[in-house]
Every structure is written in C-alpha cells, then in structure tokens.
Design a binder for these strands. Structure first.
Length: 674
DNA sequence: TTGCCTCGAGATCA
DNA sequence: CTCGAGGCAA
C-alpha cells in the first residue's frame, strides 16, 4: 500500500522546496542548474504525490502556478498605504530643479545619493506577504483601492509564493511592475497567429489584460514576469536604511529586481545614468519609458515627505516622447456638460508607441490658432509619458492648396442655439443651458458617473439612447424609468433592463459628497464636494449658506463661493434637488465625526516638520475632524503650530509672531482629549 | 486616448 | 458566434 503519511508529507515538502529553489534560479536569477527535462521530472513527481494525497494541498505549492478555477468577479482591495505616482522630469533642467528642491528641503548642501533604475513600462502591482507567504496581490487602481488579483499573481513565476531566508518582516508588502518581455510577447503573438487567434497590440496592454483575466489558467499561459522596486506595509520587522539595501534584501528573499539599478551621487551622475540607459534601451528585452531616481537614504526620504499624490524624494525622468506625422482629416466640435465647445481633431490613423492614434483633443480655439491648424494639414503628433496624444505642430511646407481653415461654428452643433464667448475668455459655450440636448446628456452622464451616484451600466451610449428616445429629460427621470419602454430599445433585453433598474435603485442610497458632486455645480469637483459635505454635514445648511459662510470651507474662495451660491439660488436647481429627494435619493448626514476630543471649531492649525508617530495626513484629518482648519502658512490668525522634527521657517515665523507652538506629543495629548 | 477583458444581446444553425 | 457597451489601466 502507500507509504506512511509523514514520509509523504516530508517528500512533498522537500520537492516543493526544490522546485521553489530551481524556479527562483531560472525565473528570477536567470541561472538554471537543472535542464528543463530534469525540472519537469521533479515537478511531475510532486504533482503526482499531491493528487494522490490531497490532504497535503497548499495554495502556495509551486504546482498551483498553472492557475485555478475562474473567479466570477474581482474583489476590491483597499491599500493600507496608498500607491502613489511619481512626479515627472522631461529634461536635465527638471532634474537639476529636483535636486535643488531636495537640498533646500533637507537644509543641506551635502551631495545627495540617488538610487537609479529604469522605469519599466508595465502594470504596477502590490504583493502582500504574511509570515513569508504570499497572501494577496492587488492592482494599483486609483492608488487607494485596487483589485484583488491574487490568483493571477500566483501564476507569475517571478512572484515568490514563499519567501526565502527568515529575516523578513512578518507583514511585508512589496511593490513592482508586472510586464512581458519583448521576446515572450513576440513568441506569444507568433503562436496566437499560428493558431488563428487575435494578436495583442503591445506588451503593456497585453500585460494589463492578462492580469484582469478571471480565469487564472489563461493568465498562467501568458509570459508575465515582474521587477520589484519598493515596499509598502512593513510590520513585525525592520528594513535597511537605504533604498539600495532594501532592494538587496528583497533579492535575498527571492524577489526579482532590476539588474541595471545603481546608486550614484549628485544629479549630474543621474543625468549620465539617464543617457546610458537611453543608449542601451534598444538592446533591452523589455520596454522602458525613462528612469526613476530615488533619494537613497530612507531617513532623508522621511524628512522630504510627500506632496498630495507624489513623494518629494523620487522622480521619473521620461525619455523624449515618440513623434509621428499624419494628416488632420477634420475638426469636430463637441459640447460638454457646461456647454463648453471643444474642438477635436480627427486624424488619419497612425501607429505610435504601440497604439493607433486617430483622435486628439484640441482643447479650445486658442490652441487651434496657436498651432495655425487647417483641415488637410500634415501635423506632428506626440504621445508623451502621459497617455493623451497631442498635436504639437503643423508642417506648413506640406500644406495642400485645398486645405480648409478651422472655424468655430456659428451655432451649437447639438441644438443650434447661439454660441457665446465672453471677452477675454478662451472657452466658447452653447448659450442654451439644459435645453441643449448635448448638455442634458452630459449632465445626466456626469450624474451617473463613478464619483457621482455611480450607476453601473449607464454609460454614454445608453444615456444618448434614453434622451434621444425621449425616455428621460432630467436626472430625476432616471428614477421614474420602468421595464416596458426600456425593453423596446435595441440591444436591451430583459437581463440588461433588470440590471439597469437594479443599479438605478441601488444608487439612491448615496453619500452627501457624491450627491453634491453629482449636481454638477461649476468649479465643484470631487475634492470640493467632499469639503462642502464635511463642513455643512447635510444639504439643508449648504443650500442656505451665504457666499461669506461658503468661503469658510477649505479650498473655497470668493469665486467658487459665488458659483455655489448662485447654483443653489436658481429656482430650477432647487426643483431638481427636491425632485431627486422626493424620488428617494438619500444619504446619511456626514457625521462631522464626534470622536472624543476637544472642539477645535474655528481654530487654525499649521503643521511643520516631520511627525514621528502620526503621519501628517493622519494629524491633519484628525484635526479637521475636530473642526480645526489646517493650513500651510503661519499668520497672526493661526491658533497654534505643531512642530515636528527639523521644523524650519514656519516654526521661526510662529515664534516671531508669538503663536503658540506644540510638540507632537502635546498634539497627541490634545487629540486624546487632554 | 487606446486596448483589453467581460457581459449581454441578437443572429445563426441545429 | 459576433458585436458593442462598459470599466479598467497607463
């Protein structure tokens, strides 16, 4: 009969270790010791034992790299530490500015050490380990929330399932870039073509698509790999104090890091690295779109801190954008939610950096005349590090005699009303407000969008259909929709209709922030909507607020306050809001959280220096929760200044003005109700 | 802005 | 089975 089970367990464990080890040699270090056939033999031995003895199954077994049963949907993952993006540099001068800002902020003229690495053109992912085992993988998403792609990440050979050594922190989040090698990509497409399947347009999108497969068995067949470049959460252990040493530690634990990483001193050496990378770029087996430079010393990183969305201690120096020349076929005019008329270029399709460009926004007529565009012209287009293609110039020597001037239409292309462009303003607008069908469609689309009421399944095309068919005219009409007229629409079966109606019903329960944003008040975006919601707590007080009291809200100045007050002053807006509420749209009043603590309403606080226990954002949000306003500069109106380590000019100013200064500990005592 | 995946609808064929 | 819409990532 079969062997005693502890013997089997031992052998399974040994085989798994062996396979992990040889996987690592092969996929991460690129230095295999076994031939493919030898490896296969060991692998099949393990597979055999595991299937005979299912009681020893382990989701982190190397045999699970082939993927498992398909998911029905991805779940959301909140990042414990946000995944930020990087500030960009587009030339050596930007790099010099970067170093200057760092030195100023560190208050030191000492040379700065930078860790340099190529910027891989792939998809950012986060890997979370607990006790050395991979427990979760996620996409970046919007930086705060991403999608759980653990099953897919498990199939990537360069992602360690179990960490090597034993010095790693108990909880460790490692971040990096998933990508496809150019050779792997080419081979995959060759095979797809041979089998008569569709080929992928470029490695980047193929990578993004592969990671979003619900069936990880398909992901396993894609030639994905990854380079790791930073850490997020670290608990139950410590990491080295230099970025380069952290990367070395990651390598020891089994992660794949980029071999071209270097540490250099000073910005000139960074620029030299950039030039060298640009040289060898064509020889690399993966796409890069620039270099990333990080201050190597972690203590200095901490001192430098963060701007809203980017760290101050890192920058991405992008290679010059790829350029192409194509013909401007036409310029069309679109009408936005606020009536803004935007010219859009229709281009003869041209391949640029792996994608086919056929449209580009021209923003406004000033841009058109600045470029001197005429329909029929040959134009130079760029697709820079960002995604948006841009017309950067005209080649006048190639102009045909039959080229046609680009003129702002005399009337709105959607509704035929007049177009107005106030003196001194760049934007031309349709004059008829919500009686213009394009503006109505856009305002309904905005109302249903992700950050507003988030009505899933209600996109551009459906809104267009509903408005054109006369089924809806206002946002409120959405909540009066019924089955019968909907199923009569083309491409709307029973299933789609019930999904849509369910999504509309769900959207009624919302938040004040979303509701305010959904109203589409001029100048009120997501951030301002949140500030207004937090400040007023409910819609009533906001509707009645005076221009003066509106200005007490963060980031609301006289102009925005005026716009908001005028919106709420208009009779038709009041009717729309009342209708929505009558139709069942509701939210919990924002509890201007009554966390235990003193009432700091009206107090003005300034944070300066590096905080040790609290992060700056924590401190800020806790203070705001208690009603305080946190501002960036010290004045005589400042109630008190909180000074962390290495506080600079703000502390000096506070002392000069005789403003009270609190240490971080004193702030914590205060927040805890002291 | 494009390309990718997923879903549902509707066409086609059995 | 193919098509188009919606949502996501850069």
């Amino acid at each position: 009969m079969s062997k005693p089970s502890e013997k089997v367990a031992d052998e399974i464990a040994r085989l798994r270790d062996q396979i992990h080890y040889h996987n690592h040699l092969y996929h991460t270090l690129d230095q295999p010791e076994l031939s493919d056939a030898e490896f296969d033999a060991v692998f099949r031995r393990l597979q055999g034992l595991e299937s005979e003895h299912p009681q020893f199954a382990d989701e982190n077994s190397p045999t699970r790299r082939v993927g498992g049963a398909p998911l029905t949907a991805f779940t959301q993952v909140a990042h414990e530490r946000p995944m930020l993006s990087l500030d960009n540099a587009f030339g050596a001068e930007d790099m010099v500015d970067f170093e200057r800002r760092i030195k100023t902020r560190l208050d030191s003229q000492e040379p700065v050490s930078f860790a340099c690495e190529p910027k891989i053109d792939g998809v950012a992912i986060s890997l979370l380990y607990e006790g050395g085992r991979l427990v979760r993988a996620a996409t970046r998403g919007d930086g705060a929330t991403g999608e759980n792609i653990t099953e897919n990440a498990r199939t990537i050979s360069a992602v360690p399932l179990n960490l090597m050594g034993d010095e790693y922190p108990y909880r460790l989040e490692v971040r990096g870039e998933a990508y496809m090698s150019l050779s792997g990509f080419a081979e995959m497409n060759l095979q797809a073509e041979a089998e008569g399947e569709k080929v992928f347009a470029n490695p980047r999108n193929a990578t993004a698509g592969s990671l979003r497969q619900l069936d990880s068995r398909l992901t396993a067949k894609r030639p994905l790999t990854m380079f790791c470049y930073s850490v997020g959460v670290v608990e139950g252990g410590t990491l080295p104090e230099e970025h380069s040493a952290i990367l070395e530690a990651l390598r020891r634990w089994g992660f794949r890091t980029n071999p071209l990483t270097e540490v250099v001193v000073g910005v000139d050496a960074c620029n030299d690295y950039f030039a060298r990378l640009q040289e060898i770029r064509p020889t690399l087996d993966y796409e890069i779109d620039g270099c990333v430079f990080k201050v190597n010393n972690i203590a200095q990183q901490v001192t430098l801190g963060f701007l809203t969305r980017t760290p101050r201690w890192a920058i991405a120096h992008k290679f010059p954008a790829e350029e192409g020349v194509t013909r401007l076929l036409d310029v069309e005019f679109q009408v936005g939610r606020t009536g803004a008329i935007t010219p859009v270029a229709r281009l003869e399709p041209i391949k640029l950096a792996g994608v086919t460009i056929s449209n580009a926004t021209l923003h406004n007529m000033d841009e058109v005349s600045r470029l001197g565009l005429a329909v029929g012209d040959m134009v130079k287009i760029q697709r820079a590090g960002d995604v948006i293609p841009k017309i950067v110039g005209v080649l006048p020597e190639l102009r045909d005699t039959d080229s046609r001037e680009v003129a702002l239409p005399a009337v709105c292309p959607a509704c035929g009303s007049g177009i107005v462009q106030p003196e001194g303003e760049v934007i031309a607008r349709c004059s008829s407000g919500l009686s213009c069908s394009a503006q109505r469609k856009e305002s309904i689309r905005h109302f249903a969008s992700r950050l507003a009421l988030d009505i899933e399944g209600l996109g551009d095309k459906l809104v267009e259909q509903l408005v054109d068919e006369g089924l809806i005219e206002t946002t409120g009409d959405l909540f009066r929709l019924t089955d019968e007229p909907l199923v009569a629409l083309p491409r709307m079966g029973r299933k789609s209709v019930s999904n849509l109606l369910a999504a509309i019903e769900d959207s009624k329960q919302t938040t004040l922030t979303r509701f305010i944003y959904a109203l589409g008040i001029a100048e009120v975006g997501e951030a301002t909507a949140r500030n207004l919601a937090m400040h007023f707590g409910d819609l009533g007080p906001l509707r009645d607020a005076s221009v003066e009291s509106l200005q007490e809200v963060d980031d609301v100045g006289p102009i925005v306050a005026e716009k908001i007050a005028s919106f709420f002053g208009q009779k038709n807006n009041q009717i729309v809001m009342d209708q929505l509420i009558a139709l069942g749209v509701q939210w919990e009043p924002e509890i201007v959280e009554t966390v235990p603590g003193p009432d700091l309403t009206g107090e003005k606080v300034v944070l300066t220096g590096t905080l040790r226990t609290l992060t700056r954002n924590d401190a800020k949000s806790q203070l705001q929760t208690l009603g305080a306003k946190v501002s960036g500069s010290v004045s005589s109106k400042t109630s008190f200044v909180v000074a962390g380590d290495a506080a600079g000019s703000k502390l000096t100013k506070a002392q000069e003005l005789g403003v009270r200064v609190l240490s971080e500990q004193e702030l914590i005592d205060l927040l805890e109700g002291g």
